[in-house]
Amino acid sequence: MVEFFQSIVNGIAVGSAYTLTGLGLTVIFSVYRILNLAHGEIYMLGAFISFFSMSYLNVPFFVAIVISMIASGVIGMILERLVFRPMKNHGEADFLIVTVGLLFFISNLAMYVFTPNIRSIQGPFEQNTFNFLGLNISQQRLFIIIITVILIVALHYFNFHTKTGKQMRAVAQDKHAAQLMGINVNRMGVIAFFIAAALAAVAGTLMGDMQSINPAMGFAPLLMAVIVVIFGGLGSVIGAIVGGLTIGIVQSLSVTYFSSALSNILLYLILFLTLMVMPNGLFGRKSYE
């Protein structure tokens, strides 16, 4: 029984990291209606910016995260302005493919500039494990869960209690109507990209600290994050949470009770079957026409 609950706890820990990575995807989708497959590359850049801030500016870990959030956010804004905004008249599939192009471009540029060497971020966490009723969770994992919760709450607050957030939701619901109401749609796009990239920077730095950083680190987490947000429903924060936790727990349980080498098959099966029943994921609104 302990084994089962430990597996669930692990799933929650793993899943909240997925959610954290997926949040940015959700923010961009809610305004731009695109799944940004280059998000993992921002995640990678964010980790590198934190690393360079710490090693060259000698700033502490948390300051480095803030620097990285801002710098990555600016990169996100530049991408919005240069790549995505001029493509407003294109269809969803074009956007998807452009993000694939960006993914190739950024990751290989990084490979070239940073070299494939492994770097490590030295976070402040100790190898501490908290024990509760026989269940274990490490300090670092717990911290990631807490940060994820804080960011979700902040995102929720921003969406529902600030003027910009409300405007953004208006744009997400009906772009034309929002425009007619005098909302600056372009500005909303920029803000969405800033927030998404900043969230990616947090995720990249925290995961980079837990693991290690290199230019190829972005793609695999992106794939997991995509599964999470598609499963949960694009554009839905609730979806990202439920998706992350479900995928994390399923993965953890299937490693524990099924087969480690085969564990991913269940994730994809669940994703596939869920989509068959709910074509917009669990909480996704039907895409607008």
Partner: peptide, 20 residues
């Protein structure tokens, strides 16, 4: 043996299995 699939980003479940 515990073999994780290529593309694994999070090793927690696999390491837990190893422990078991």
């Amino acid at each position: 043996d515990v073999l994780f699939p290529p593309g694994t980003t999070d090793f927690l479940p696999f390491v837990t299995k190893l422990k078991e």
